[in-house]
Write a protein that binds this DNA or RNA. Structure first.
Lengths: 236, 236
DNA sequence: TATCCTATGATTAGCCC
DNA sequence: GGGGCTAATCATAGGAT
């Protein structure tokens, strides 16, 4: 929103729409990060779209799965599930089955504390000992995930007073001035004890998206006259 | 971010933190809505936190469930699940079981088109025929959900050219100048055919949060010395 | 197509009620 | 606690490269 007010409607231009999407996701991620750090809530964000082969995940895929898992493990005394299912009996049955699965998941899952210490140990002793991945591209991804997650936690527990040159930090985001990778690498090489303290189970923020390999884009009313659209797997 | 630059760190003051949270969630929702409309992607947002009894959901709880379901139904040809599970064998097993459930869910679920038409019919003929809910507060919630969802779709397919006084709209968000409820009610009373056209299965945005009834808030290093914290259900 | 730049609209911290 | 206000920071559309 600059130089010209943007109308709240679908962007016609392919390139412009993609650009807006890219910027929007970036901004959204920043918002989630802010909310998470400022308010001390557990959060994650997953944005999956046809514009990207790989989904955008914050703070990392592994963390995201954990946080989502926690969300689903929430006690039943809130009305979430009730409200989520009150209109569809089929969904109710599915949700019930899911709950059972989730319970088993919780039973088997490492605790937050153990998980963190495990990750820190692995990071300190050598990532390759911990990561057992064949494909090199996957390996890179995993490393990046881990580093981003650690970097985020470091950032979270950093305080201006403990920063080397607190007053000298001019950037909008004072901590983590290098790339997440750089910040995290440095963190790994120093003591990582500060990273062990877990966050409270306050909140979760998730951003994700469903199927659609093709770029079937919506437009003004006439766009669905192409019958092949209705045959899309999404509608079957 | 006004009047004073805010440091990216946990907000100490209880009231200030809550206020920031409230404003932040509102902003986040708006961002998700923008991304969804501007880029034509399916999205939902769920924010569940100790600051609210009821979770904040966009566009509505029912829509959110549908969108999340679609996300989980995505074909395996992307690397999401692979990446999400590559570090935890337990989670892999759970995910597998979930996939099977999801397949059954997909099999039983109404199609997008049928769902929308059904909702529109129910809206036109009388909500109470369609909603079978005893508790009046739940009823109110359901109605609000439905209206918000319809309102959102109406907004999505509106174009400035089709608006009555297009040039006269001064607001930042030109469409839906009344409350969502007002807009949706008016929509229901007019033809709803425009609302039938579904969106493409492009993307999904979800925002949610996990457990934590108590307000166990994180702080600088010393905050976890209270042993009762470690006994929190979250860590067992 | 991605990245950088910057004017400008959008967002929001701190107050007040 | 919630809603409105306003100054000041933030985010980003459009253009250049």
């Amino acid at each position: 929103m600059a130089r010209k007010k943007v109308q709240l409607q679908w962007i016609m231009g392919d390139t412009a729409r993609r650009t807006t999407y890219k910027k929007g996701v970036k901004g959204l991620m920043k918002k989630v990060k802010e909310l998470s750090i400022l308010c001390g809530i557990e959060a994650c964000a997953v944005v999956y779209s046809p514009y990207d082969l790989q989904p955008e995940v914050w703070p990392s895929p592994v963390e995201a799965v954990r946080v989502i898992g926690e969300f689903k493990c929430r006690p039943e005394n809130d009305q979430t599930k009730k409200r989520f299912n009150q209109e569809n009996h089929t969904r109710q049955r599915v949700a019930k089955a899911k709950d059972q699965l989730v319970k088993q998941q919780k039973k088997n899952r490492r605790t937050e504390m153990e998980n963190l210490m495990y990750q820190c140990q692995a990071g300190g002793k050598g990532l390759q000992e911990y990561l057992n991945i064949k494909d090199s591209s996957d390996l890179m991804w995993s490393i990046d995930d881990r580093l981003k997650a650690v970097g985020h936690r470091m950032e979270y527990f950093h305080h201006p007073a403990t920063q080397p040159g607190g007053a000298a930090a001019p950037a909008t985001v004072p901590v983590a001035q290098g790339t997440p990778l750089e910040v995290a690498l440095e963190s790994l090489e120093n003591q990582m004890l500060v990273d062990i303290a877990p966050r409270p189970p306050d909140s979760l923020v998730t951003v994700g998206y469903p199927g659609g390999q093709d770029m079937m884009l919506p437009g003004p009313y006439g766009h669905y006259e192409d019958l092949s659209f209705w045959g899309h797997p999404f509608f079957t």
